[in-house]
Design a protein around this nucleic acid. Structure first.
Lengths: 231, 231
DNA sequence: TCGACCATATTCGTCAGATGTATCCCGGCG
DNA sequence: CGCCGGGATACATCTGACGAATATGGTCGA
């Protein structure tokens, strides 16, 4: 295969070189096909790939545009990739989170505003109120960590961590937590992190986040062990 | 759009659920099209997307197979995503590397074998010998850090860091380094990391890696500043 | 003048069918 | 037993067509 992949590479390099800045509208598919020397089918495959990578935005009846190329978009693919990883590599993902999340949380302690803290306190309260609903817990857990990391102001970091803790992964951890009657303790870990953040204590925030990720990893281990034992 | 994206989601969920384990061969495109209720064109677009994500491996004349789903494959897309990030977000990437790379290097200090160290020493020697050739320097720089991180045994971590320090990013840093007559000093930073690793000193390895990433970030800043001044 | 409405052009979404070409597999031959 | 064709299989690409969603520009009425 060459034609379609060439087209992908060509479009990508035109974007990378700045020839097609964010927001640019591409020529209609038939024109693009003629320009790149292949049929419309080939162009469509190429465009579809770049659309799935959030590089292009295809609007039916309108045209195809270059996206903003924001990290939040381009790094979105990480999430779906992580979702497809095999079970035995999820622990590797956890090890990465173990490195990244404490650092990010520590950084957040320095940069967090009072408004951020209030928002976080609200999420924490919601989490406590939903202590019985796994679905809600996962949602608030996600919101909590996302909010913390987002206050670092680093969108790339936020997107990476969001991707690394995908929905499936979180769901498994919480399944273990709930079945192991450790949900309450874990909610308290969030409280500990919250207190450290409110105190603007970087080291304490870092340490409490590490402990928290460690708890998640431990419960993931039990879930994975139970899962492999079933087979 | 629904049909093609549905097909993508359908295939992906079949893989995620274990219905299509790694190595499985998919039905021929016409059959797949019939099964999923759309034309062959649509199936081809779906397959192409999953192929570009390294989820499927299409072999002409043979068939379409599910890949190993190894992190090294699935996280490969991160690299191309980073390549497309706009200049002003590259500093965010550097900030992430600044968190991750020292941690990884510190971990490597604990896990590195003598053979790994010898290989690293060789790369270092090569780097010194190529002090004038930017192209070679970039190659050896890449190899050096990849080798270090790879010894952590965490393929996910390795793939992430590989992706975060893409070719273009490295090339820019080295351009700055060379033009700023700082290449020699940077090579010595590698030597410092090497010594820490050989001493199996985790903290020292961590610290020297942080200094090194910091140097890279500083030179990236100058390159970016010079670039934006040109316009 | 301004806003709502409508017809039309544009553009992507999807399909059907056909041909080219790489690869695999198996049977025949030395 | 190993090498080598030739048919079968499967992807690669093209062509042409129709459907559906959207944008656009003009018209009409308040």
């Amino acid at each position: 295969m060459a034609l379609t992949d060439d087209a992908i590479a060509k479009i990508r390099s035109m974007i990378q070189s700045g020839e097609l800045p964010p927001g640019t509208r591409l020529p209609p598919e038939p024109v693009l096909a003629a320009q790149m020397g292949l049929s419309r089918s080939g162009v469509r495959e190429a465009v579809k790939v770049l659309e799935s990578a959030r590089v292009l935005d295809v609007r039916r009846g309108d045209g195809t545009y270059v996206t903003s190329l924001a990290p939040r978009l381009l790094l979105q693919g990480l999430g779906v990739a992580v979702e497809l990883l095999r079970d035995d590599t999820l622990l590797e993902v956890m090890e990465v989170r173990r490195m990244l999340e404490p650092m990010a949380t520590g950084l957040a302690a320095l940069r967090m505003t009072d408004a951020d803290l209030d928002e976080l306190g609200q999420i924490l309260a919601d989490m406590r109120a939903a202590a019985d609903d796994a679905e809600q817990l996962i949602r608030y857990d996600t919101a909590f960590h996302h909010t913390v990391v987002a206050t670092t102001g680093n969108e790339t970091l936020t997107s990476l961590l969001d991707g690394l803790s995908g929905r499936t992964l979180r769901a498994r951890v919480w399944r273990g937590l709930i079945e192991g009657n450790a949900a309450h303790q874990t909610i308290e870990e969030h409280h500990t992190i919250y207190l450290a953040l409110r105190a603007r204590d970087q080291l304490l925030a870092q340490a409490s986040a590490l402990l928290h990720v460690n708890t998640s990893e431990a419960w993931l281990r039990t879930v994975l062990a139970a899962g492999s034992a079933d087979e």
